[in-house]
């Protein structure tokens, strides 16, 4: 009996420790998410009478061509930037995992882009891409590679790839660090045994390294995908969604309605974004399990 009381006491005490976090989750995550869901079924427009509208906002969304334009841009952005970041991150991680003399310095350098706030790095890239005084054009014209400066952000394709390059620069370090952690968890003797069995470098990589870092790869992939899905600051600073709305990401599309005063519609966009993120996460987790099962 005494022991049971003790156990209850301990549960109580641990509840107290968990409470701040729980409060944090409820106040800053759960309530806003639910609130957004509730707002999304209202026609909540600043200058009109608020009224219940069920799926009205969602219906409007489904018939809005610029929603599809943003959806297309966002998915394309994920499809192009995330694989590049993961592959580059893997390469950097493999290099850094080798005992090089300046490894510490290299690791610190690699982290610099990741440590810079996104809005600041976007501003930096804006200064690089700027037509009249941007670094890229100054270099091109000084080296006489092109007769005229290039308007990097002036075409749909140009703006898209400019954003991808800036994003890859900024977030590859993140992927590299996560993958590096995975690499360092692999016991050295596994490679020794592989060598004894006569495995060459490629076989050691594909049969030992890759399967063992797969869990961290999935984590990196998941983090990067979700992050890319809600890309905002980079696009907002670099192109503001232009030219002609070609680079409006989904979160920018939704944000616009918030500042325009249509809160119900903005919330509906957020909910769609949330569902997309949820769907992608589930897909990744499923995929990683399935691969484990057949291997």
């Amino acid at each position: 009996m005494a022991m049971r009381n003790d156990a209850i006491g301990r549960v109580r005490e641990s509840l107290i420790y968990v409470l701040p976090l729980l409060l944090f989750v409820v106040v800053f995550i759960l309530i806003p998410v639910l609130g957004t869901g509730v707002t999304s079924v209202f026609k909540d427009i600043a200058f009109l009478e608020k009224r219940f509208a069920l799926f009205d906002n969602y219906r409007t969304l489904l018939y809005d061509p610029s929603f599809y334009q943003s959806l297309r841009f966002t998915l394309l952005f994920i499809a192009v930037s995330v694989p590049v970041e993961i592959v580059l991150g893997l390469v950097f991680a493999l290099i850094l995992n080798h005992p090089l003399p300046v490894r510490g310095v290299l690791r610190a350098c690699l982290l610099v882009p990741w440590a810079i706030p996104a809005a600041v790095s976007a501003r930096t890239w804006e200064l690089i891409y700027n037509y009249s005084y941007g670094l890229a054009n100054v270099m091109l014209t000084k080296l006489k590679l092109t007769g005229e400066p290039v308007n990097w952000l002036g075409t749909e394709r140009g703006a898209f790839f400019s954003i991808v390059v800036a994003d890859v620069w900024k977030t590859t370090p993140f992927a590299a660090i996560i993958i590096l952690a995975g690499l360092q968890a692999i016991p050295e003797d596994l490679y020794g045994q592989a060598r004894v069995d006569g495995a060459n470098a490629w076989q050691r990589f594909s049969k030992v390294t890759l399967p063992l870092i797969k869990p961290v790869l999935v984590v990196a992939l998941l983090f990067r995908t979700i992050d890319a899905l809600r890309v905002f600051d980079l696009v907002y600073v670099l192109t503001r969604g232009g030219p002609g709305g070609a680079t409006t990401s989904l979160s920018m599309y939704g944000y616009r309605y918030f500042v325009l005063g249509d809160f119900g519609y903005g919330s509906a966009v957020s909910v769609v974004l949330f569902l997309l993120a949820l769907g992608l996460s589930i897909a990744y987790v499923r995929l990683s399990r399935w691969r484990t099962a057949i291997m």
Binding site: E156, P243, G244, A246, R256
Partner: peptide, 23 residues
């Protein structure tokens, strides 16, 4: 009009797209 900013946003997007030569 109260929703002028929305109207302007739509026009900005299409006019800017034309200036960019996208349509």
């Amino acid at each position: 009009i109260p929703y002028y900013t929305q109207l302007s946003e739509v026009m900005q997007r299409h006019i800017n797209g034309t200036l960019a030569g996208e349509c």
